[in-house]
Design a protein around this nucleic acid. Sequence first.
DNA 1: GTCTATAACCGGATAGAC
DNA 2: GTCTATCCGGTTATAGAC
Lengths: 214, 214
Amino acid sequence: MPEAQALPDTRERILIEASRLLSINGYHGTTTRDIAAAVGISQPSLFFHFTNKLAIVQELYEHDIVPAVAGLENLVVGPGDPAAKLYAMIVGEFGRIADSPYDMRAHISFEALNHPDLAGFRDLVNQFDDLTRLLIRSGQESGQFVHGNAWLAQQMVSGFLVRANLFASSDQVERQINPREGAALVLRSLLIDPETIEQVEERAEELLPRYRSP
Amino acid sequence: MPEAQALPDTRERILIEASRLLSINGYHGTTTRDIAAAVGISQPSLFFHFTNKLAIVQELYEHDIVPAVAGLENLVVGPGDPAAKLYAMIVGEFGRIADSPYDMRAHISFEALNHPDLAGFRDLVNQFDDLTRLLIRSGQESGQFVHGNAWLAQQMVSGFLVRANLFASSDQVERQINPREGAALVLRSLLIDPETIEQVEERAEELLPRYRSP
DNA sequence: GTCTATAACCGGATAGAC
DNA sequence: GTCTATCCGGTTATAGAC
C-alpha cells in the first residue's frame, strides 16, 4: 500500500512552478533562477532534472498540446455532426486545462514557440487551429452553421479558449469557467437555428469521451 | 508644399520595427540589437532617440491602448443601446488596429505589462475589459442579450479581438479581417433575438464616429 | 540530489569620436 | 545623428565537492 504522499517529487514541482511562471512572464522573461527559487532549490540543481531550460518547456508543451490535438483529431474523424463535435471540443478543452496540474493557460505564451527546437509543437498548435476550422467549415457546408469567413470564426473560438483560461482564477467566483456555458456561447454565434442548442448539447455529451481519452 | 517623403524618420522606423518584433518575440525576447538591426542602425544609436528600451514600449502602448479606452469610454457614456455600442466597439477596434502604422497585434504581448513602470497601461487594459463587461451586463439587464456569466462573454470578445489581430496577415485573403463580419459574429452569440442584427448594425454605424474620434 | 563556485555569454546602457 | 569601443549586471550551464 502506498503511503500518503507529501510533496510531489522535485522534478514534478519544477514543472508546476515553471508552468506558473512561464504563463505570467513568458519564456524569455522567466529565468532558471526564478524557477529554482520557486521550487526551493539552487539554480544549478535544475540541471540535474532537465538537460536545459528548453527541456522544461518541451515537456510542458508535450503534456498540453499533444493530447489536445489527439482528442480533437479523434473527434473529427469519428461520428457526429459538426456542431456537437465543436461543442464537445470546447467543453473538453476547458475541462482539460482546468484539470491539468500545470498552469498551461496561454499555451505558455506563444512567444516561446518561435524557438527552432519547438517547431514541432508550433506545427501541432497550427494543426489544432486547422482542425477547428475544418469543423466550422463542415458545419457551414452541412447547413448547420451560418456561412461566413471560417478563419474569423475559428479565431473567435481559439482566442476565447486561450483568454478565458489565461484569466481564469479560482479566487473569483465570477471567473470560474463553466465549460458548457462557454461552449454554448460559441455555438449560439454559429448555429443557424440557436433553438437547436439543447439537442446539440445532448449529442455532444456522448462525444465528450472521444475527446478526453483518444 | 511638402516633398514626396522617402522613408519615415529614424525614430518612427524604430517604433515600427520594434512593434513588429515585440509582437512576435515579446518584450524579453526582443533585444535592442534586434531592433537596431531591423532599422539598420547600430545598437547604441537607439539611445539617441529613446532613453531606454522600456521607453519604446511605453510609446507604443500610449499609441495603442489610450485611444482604445478613450473611444470605448466615449461610447459607453453616450446615447445608444448596448448591442449597437458593442458592435461599434468591435468594428472600431478591428479598424483601429488595422490602420495603425504599428504592429500592435497582441497589445504587444501582455508579458511586458508586468513591468512595474507599465502599471498605468496595465490598468488601462483592465479598464477596457471592465467597460466591455459593463456593456455586456447592460445588454443583459435591458433584455437585449441572453443572460449568463458576463465575464465569460467578455473574454470571448477580448480574446477574439487580440487573436484575430495577432494572426491576421494581409498576404492571405482568408485572413483579412472584415470588421463588420467580426462584430456580427460576436453579436449573434449574445442577442436574444439574432434576427434584430440588421437593426443593431444600422444603429452602430451612427455610433462609430464616437469610438473613432472621442 | 543538492550544493558552491565559476565559466562563458549576452543584453542594456554609457563614453566619446566623427 | 550615428558610429566604435566598452562596461557591467544578469543568465545559462558546467565542474566538482558533499
